[in-house]
Design a protein around this nucleic acid. Sequence first.
DNA 1: AAATCGTGCAAGCATATACTTGCATGCACA
DNA 2: TGTGCATGCAAGTATATGCTTGCACGATTT
Lengths: 226, 226
Amino acid sequence: MHMATTAPDTGTHAPPLRERIAEAAAKVYGEFGFRGATTRRIAEEAGVNEVTLFRTFGSKAALIVEVLERQVGAGLRVELPETPRHPGRELLHWARSYHGHVRERRGLIMQSMGEIGEHPEVLSPMCKARDREFVVLCAYLDRLRDAGHATRPYDTVTVAAMLSGTLFSDAVGRELFPGTYPADPAQAVVAYVELTLRALGVADPVPSAEHAGAPCSATPSSIGPS
Amino acid sequence: MHMATTAPDTGTHAPPLRERIAEAAAKVYGEFGFRGATTRRIAEEAGVNEVTLFRTFGSKAALIVEVLERQVGAGLRVELPETPRHPGRELLHWARSYHGHVRERRGLIMQSMGEIGEHPEVLSPMCKARDREFVVLCAYLDRLRDAGHATRPYDTVTVAAMLSGTLFSDAVGRELFPGTYPADPAQAVVAYVELTLRALGVADPVPSAEHAGAPCSATPSSIGPS
DNA sequence: AAATCGTGCAAGCATATACTTGCATGCACA
DNA sequence: TGTGCATGCAAGTATATGCTTGCACGATTT
């Protein structure tokens, strides 16, 4: 057993070798999956000898598990306010965070989803992360209705599944299937939130100031026809 | 070169050996991906000797390519009417087909998405299939607006991305992340369509008769609060 | 100066995998 | 009866992969 599990940290700001390997592994795994992420490839990507990889993590499986727990377990931790004041602005903030979070990890997420059947131990952190975001959104949607912002009835689980599913699909599929998503991702997220709030019957969904940051056209609402 | 590319069909109703192998390959690929779908596993699943696999398809890559083209290329081919009459009913029909189509192939689809980077030749049929469904939906949404069914402006691409993204995410993620989707899938699809039409400002979205087939609660609308 | 430690390098081992070859077997059809 | 033909079976080849071992080199510590 290699007892160098704790970070070496030889000195004040030691070269984070463990970090470098983990980052390289995350990148390679996101591109090739578990089977495709060979120890040789990871070592090369990290600029490290293959043996060092085994000496540092013990085995390839241990490496990947640590990487996935680190990446997936690190949820976005975006809170939605306890008392909704500006539903459009607040939901948009959450949607942007969620969309960006998934988009940055889309390779890793796709590989993990395909390999859950073979490596079920990965499912638990992913499930927990997903659940966490989901209940946050659901609870906010409940509060939104209780506060009287919505003029139409709705099932929070369905609405939450719809919004998060839309954002997930966009974040993951936009690079794979160009042309089947709105051209500008930032503007797309705004439009998704606006459409969602429309369905709930929330007035003045997204303040026009929030449209900034995207090469916005002259159209007042980003969901208007082109 | 094995010139037995055309089906042997020795006799009237020959045992479809090529089919059996292809089906087994599709199943194994959907579970383990390209690397994980070893020729041994596929042969065992098909109840066939491993050599027969090579004699029939030439190589593993050729086998998988044929399987994927067959599965993904076979789109659902559900038409949306030229002149919308009952938007709820018509969209629901499309949504059910799309949801079922993706759900039946979710393993294969997830594996393919993760491996597009390595096997780009697979991307083209997937892209074409996806595009086909997407433009069908977009065109229908355009017709819906032009026919005056919708009372609110919208960008068809955004709405199409939202509805198809929601259905895709539900079909793929419902087994992986239980609890983050409405319990009954059939009812969920109805609710997604209703919410979408709400956002477009279409009145009387889904005729209540269409709610049949799902263990429907006493709620008149399936998107009402539980 | 000596010892320790982290790392690189070269080589190797055991296994798995895609794929091939040669031969035997059984079935259809003449 | 005999002749193809499709398939199974056993064995083998070349390569890739996870992982190990032994040794050398340099920096840090004692």
